[in-house]
């Protein structure tokens, strides 16, 4: 489904974020990427969202080179990916309901679909009672659950979660991972980056370990080894 082909990224100041990365992710996999800060995890994910361009090499999504997409196709492509971030990235002036509705509107869904799906998906992440709260009225765990609801509402093929538990306490961390696992069980591919040993050991899935912009391990049933 996703294929990184000899991807390297060098920034303007000659610092090398990624060097010669190649790997494949199959559909319905749950892949964790671990590594110290600055190991290149986030850069790797930004490539997939076309937020960054590789200096050399290419990234394929279902045999389409992402970085050669035209702008209007890029929007369509991004709607197939749900994103979750450490800092939540909710729209601050929109309620939980509107944040999710916005993603659906952007995808061109009808008002009826929006009215039906948004409460449903918020119910899924246990936020059925916080529909009309603004992000600043929600706790960290609740914000992240809104972000997850937004990521899954358009039924994406892939969810990218960049350190989604980085700002959360252990109980909320556990809850978020449980939800992600459930989404994966329903058939959505998930790429997760994390620092959290407990998360990796609990998942017991494929683990890619990065160091200094290179992949140093890729284990089918991985543990947190650093």
């Amino acid at each position: 489904m996703i294929y990184y082909d000899k991807v390297s990224k060098t920034y303007a100041d000659n610092s090398e974020a990624l060097s010669d990365i190649s790997f494949t992710i199959e559909a319905k996999e749950f892949v964790s990427i671990v590594g110290h800060s600055g190991a290149g995890k986030t850069t790797l994910l930004k490539m997939l969202l076309a937020e960054e361009k590789p200096t050399s090499g290419s990234v394929f999504f279902e045999s389409v080179n992402i970085h050669k997409l035209k702008r209007n196709k890029m929007n369509r492509f991004r709607r197939r990916i749900g994103t979750i971030f450490q800092d939540f990235r909710l729209l601050p002036n929109k309620t939980a309901y509107e944040n999710i509705a916005f993603a659906m509107e952007a995808a061109g869904r009808t008002d009826e679909e929006i009215r039906a799906d948004v409460p449903h998906v918020l119910e899924l992440v246990d936020l059925g009672k916080k529909l009309w709260n603004f992000p600043h009225e929600l706790s960290g765990g609740e914000k992240q659950r809104v972000a997850i609801a937004r990521a899954i509402v358009n039924q994406p093929d892939l969810i990218i979660a960049d350190e989604p538990t980085g700002n959360l306490d252990p109980i909320n961390t556990h809850e978020i991972i449980r939800i992600l696992k459930k989404i994966n069980d329903l058939g959505t591919t998930i790429i997760l980056t994390t620092h959290n040993r407990g998360v990796i050991d609990a998942l017991g899935g494929r683990v890619i370990t990065m160091e200094g912009g290179r992949i140093v391990r890729d284990d089918k049933k991985g543990k947190y080894v650093l």
Binding site: E51, R78, R79, R89, N93, F102, A103, A106, R150
Partner: peptide, 16 residues
């Protein structure tokens, strides 16, 4: 600008 970048990531078109 952060808001705009979030909108882009969610897949909103420039017009929207």
């Amino acid at each position: 600008r952060d808001e705009i970048s979030v909108m882009k990531l969610v897949g909103a078109s420039n017009r929207y």
